[in-house]
Amino acid sequence: MSNSPRMNGKVSVVTGAGSGIGRAAALRLAEEGSKVALIDLHAETVEKVRGEIQAAGGQALALTVDISEPAQYREALQKVASEYGKIDTLFANAGILGVVGPIESIEDDDWDKTLTNNVKGTFTSVKYAIPYLKENGKGSIVLTSSLSGTRVFSQKGFSAYSTSKASIAAFGQMAAFELAPFNIRVNIVAPGTIETNISDTGEQEPEVENMNTKPVEFPEGTVPLPEGSGKPEQVANLVLFLLSDEADHVSGAVVHIDGAESLFVG
Results as ranks from 00 to 15, higher is better:
1 M>T: 10
2 S>W: 02
2 S>V: 13
5 P>Q: 05
8 N>F: 09
8 N>M: 05
11 V>N: 07
14 V>K: 02
15 T>W: 01
17 A>I: 13
17 A>H: 11
20 G>P: 14
21 I>W: 03
22 G>L: 04
23 R>K: 00
24 A>S: 13
26 A>E: 06
27 L>F: 06
32 E>Y: 09
35 K>W: 02
41 L>Y: 03
44 E>V: 08
45 T>M: 08
49 V>T: 14
53 I>W: 08
54 Q>H: 11
56 A>P: 00
62 A>W: 05
65 V>D: 06
68 S>Q: 05
68 S>T: 13
76 A>P: 12
80 V>R: 04
84 Y>M: 15
85 G>N: 07
87 I>T: 08
88 D>Q: 04
88 D>F: 05
91 F>E: 04
91 F>N: 09
94 A>T: 04
96 I>S: 15
100 V>E: 11
101 G>S: 04
103 I>K: 00
103 I>N: 05
109 D>S: 08
109 D>N: 06
110 D>V: 02
111 W>S: 08
112 D>P: 00
114 T>E: 02
119 V>M: 04
121 G>I: 11
125 S>T: 14
128 Y>S: 03
128 Y>L: 06
130 I>A: 04
130 I>Y: 00
135 E>Q: 07
138 K>T: 10
138 K>F: 01
139 G>Y: 02
143 L>P: 08
154 S>A: 09
154 S>W: 02
154 S>E: 06
155 Q>R: 13
156 K>E: 15
158 F>G: 13
159 S>L: 01
159 S>Y: 00
161 Y>N: 06
163 T>V: 12
164 S>I: 11
164 S>T: 14
165 K>M: 10
166 A>F: 08
169 A>K: 12
175 A>R: 12
177 F>N: 15
181 P>V: 07
183 N>P: 10
185 R>W: 05
194 I>Y: 03
201 T>F: 00
201 T>N: 06
202 G>T: 09
202 G>Y: 07
203 E>V: 14
204 Q>V: 15
209 E>I: 06
209 E>F: 14
211 M>D: 02
212 N>F: 03
214 K>L: 14
215 P>R: 10
219 P>Y: 12
220 E>F: 04
223 V>W: 01
223 V>I: 12
225 L>T: 15
226 P>S: 12
226 P>Y: 08
227 E>R: 01
227 E>M: 08
228 G>W: 07
229 S>G: 11
235 V>Y: 02
236 A>D: 06
237 N>G: 07
240 L>H: 14
240 L>G: 13
242 L>M: 14
244 S>W: 01
244 S>Q: 03
247 A>P: 02
250 V>T: 00
250 V>C: 11
252 G>Q: 06
253 A>M: 15
258 D>R: 02
261 E>D: 12
262 S>A: 11
266 G>L: 07
